[in-house]
């Protein structure tokens, strides 16, 4: 739906502009608060501006530990999701077999159901089988709901990759493995990259399932949650919040420029 030349009615433009302000202003405010000198309250406007909280946040060992754990969990969960999601997508798009729909449903379920259900289900399973909480219980939960984003990206690309490319490769002398390596993988590579990035972002930000599957360990979102419920040093939280927003800004911008001109709305897979 594109109509060239004409302009939106004034009321519509105002409503859309108001909506954009509502969407973007809260994120902008985060940036201002990171520089405030106020320690005890959320007073606006900030009484003064300072850079000292950046140094304080940088020196805090609990923050760097939480950040490191989050990165590790996201990396391992993404790797697992890439393998499992690609396998499922390949199997589902390769053949029509009995139960295909069931497989798709199985993959989508962990993200379709509210996170708290996935979380508590995993937790009660862990306690039923006396599995102690660890790095791996967090990864287990994250990989479960990350499979779907890899799967969605890969399955769409498999569908667009023409079947005759695989046949052409085999015709020219490549067996299944060689065809996978030389033809299929290069063709789905960018889809896997996109899916992997989404999975990483999803895992890095996840808090609801993680509260149920983590023991004593704190991922960055868990640290943040703790600060929200029982604030200790508000300005440090402000700095971390700003850092997290800035970190999402760059990939979103990159994705926009990479997919410009395409029909898909980049990132709409979340």
């Amino acid at each position: 739906m594109r109509s060239d030349g004409d302009r939106a009615p004034l009321l519509l433009r105002l409503a859309a502009a108001g909506g954009l302000v509502y969407l973007l202003a809260p994120l902008a405010i985060i940036f201002v608060y990171a520089f405030t000198t106020e320690e005890k309250s959320f007073v606006w406007p900030p009484p003064g501006l300072t850079l000292k909280w950046f140094a304080v946040a940088w020196a805090r060992p609990d923050i760097s530990a939480a950040l490191l754990l989050s990165l590790q969990v996201a990396a391992v969960a993404t790797a697992l999701a890439l393998v499992l999601g690609t396998l499922t997508a390949a199997a589902v798009s390769r053949t029509r077999f009995f139960g295909r729909e069931t497989i798709s449903l199985l993959v989508i379920l962990p993200i379709a159901l509210p996170g708290i259900i996935t979380g508590i289900a995993l937790r009660s399973a862990f306690s039923t089988f006396s599995i102690p909480f660890s790095f791996w219980t967090i990864v287990l939960g994250h990989a479960t709901f990350c499979i779907v984003v890899v799967y969605n990206n890969a399955v769409a690309r498999f569908r667009r990759t023409s079947a005759s490319l695989v046949e052409a490769s085999m015709d020219l002398g490549a067996d299944g493995f060689q065809t996978f390596r030389h033809v299929i993988l290069p063709n789905i590579g960018t889809a896997l990259l996109a899916g992997g990035m989404l999975a990483f972002a999803l895992s890095f930000d996840e808090v609801i399932v993680t509260t149920f599957t983590a023991g004593q360990q704190q991922t960055l979102p868990l640290w943040m949650l703790e600060e929200l419920i029982r604030p200790r040093q508000r300005p440090v939280t402000n700095v971390v919040a700003m850092f997290v927003v800035a970190a999402t800004f760059l990939p979103i911008l990159a994705a926009f420029y990479l997919t410009r001109g395409g029909d898909e709305i980049a990132g709409s897979g979340k």
Binding site: A241, V244, A255
Partner: peptide, 28 residues
């Protein structure tokens, strides 16, 4: 695009936190 994608992909907790700042009695 940015107006839709940035809030979508920004950290969930940070977004909640931003609103805690906005809605606070002494807030904006």
């Amino acid at each position: 695009y940015l107006g839709i994608m940035l809030p979508l992909w920004s950290s969930y907790l940070v977004k909640v936190y931003a609103w805690k700042l906005i809605l606070a009695k002494e807030g904006i």
